[in-house]
Amino acid sequence: MLAQILPLAGVVIGALASYLATAMAERARFRRSMAIRWDERRMDVYVEYTSHVKKMLKLGEKILRDPADPAGRQADLEALEEERSARFEALALLADPATTDAAHTVNRQVARLLRATREPDRTEPPAAGGPSLGDDVVAALNTFHAAARRGLGVSSGSPL
């Protein structure tokens, strides 16, 4: 009888070990798949957000340089602001804290640009040779890009 139980126990232990190994491999594969999916979604949100900020920057600078048709351009800028704000909400839900903080800094610089276009008479001109509002937005975007790259695990200069 013992001669029959030992091989049977070996088969049961082997089947259990095989099942556990397969389950662990499947779980790891699922986690990798989900991580890739969320990284792709985060990157899409980051690109959409920065695209809207850049469009706002270009239009805002155009309004400040040449105030012709301010109502039409301002309406376009306000529409872009609504889109940027919606993109930021998605970003805040998906991004890591450092990237979210960097995006908040971008938002503050964009708000300064919007104020300047809404009330050009109340805006202080930049100091001679100093950074413009646009330069401040670009600097904040560069910090955002660096934080987003770190959050996505992208190291600069390394081949993929």
Rank of each mutant, 00 (worst) to 15 (best):
M1L: 11
L2N: 12
L2V: 08
L2H: 08
L2Y: 05
A3N: 12
Q4S: 08
P7S: 01
A9N: 05
A9D: 00
V12D: 01
V12F: 04
V12G: 00
I13T: 15
L16A: 14
A17S: 14
A17W: 11
A17I: 14
S18I: 07
S18A: 15
A21V: 15
M24A: 14
R31I: 14
I36S: 11
W38C: 08
E40D: 11
E40C: 07
R41M: 13
R42C: 08
V47F: 09
E48S: 12
K54V: 15
L57R: 01
L57Y: 01
K58I: 13
E61G: 04
L64K: 00
R65H: 08
D66L: 04
P67A: 02
D69G: 03
D69F: 09
P70L: 04
A71G: 04
G72P: 07
A79W: 04
A79Q: 09
E81G: 10
E83D: 13
R84C: 13
S85D: 15
S85R: 12
A86K: 06
R87E: 06
A90F: 10
L91D: 00
A92L: 07
L93W: 07
L94W: 05
L94K: 07
A98I: 03
A103R: 01
T105M: 12
V106N: 01
R108L: 09
R108S: 10
A111I: 09
A111E: 13
R112H: 13
R112F: 10
L113P: 09
L113W: 06
L113R: 08
E119V: 05
E119S: 10
D121P: 00
E124G: 05
P125N: 06
P126C: 03
P126S: 03
A127P: 09
A128Q: 12
A128G: 04
A128I: 09
G130Y: 06
P131F: 09
G134Y: 02
D135Y: 03
V137R: 00
V138C: 02
A139H: 10
A140E: 01
F144D: 02
H145N: 13
H145D: 14
A147K: 00
A148F: 02
R149S: 10
L152M: 12
G153I: 03
V154D: 06
S155Y: 12
L160P: 14
L160M: 12
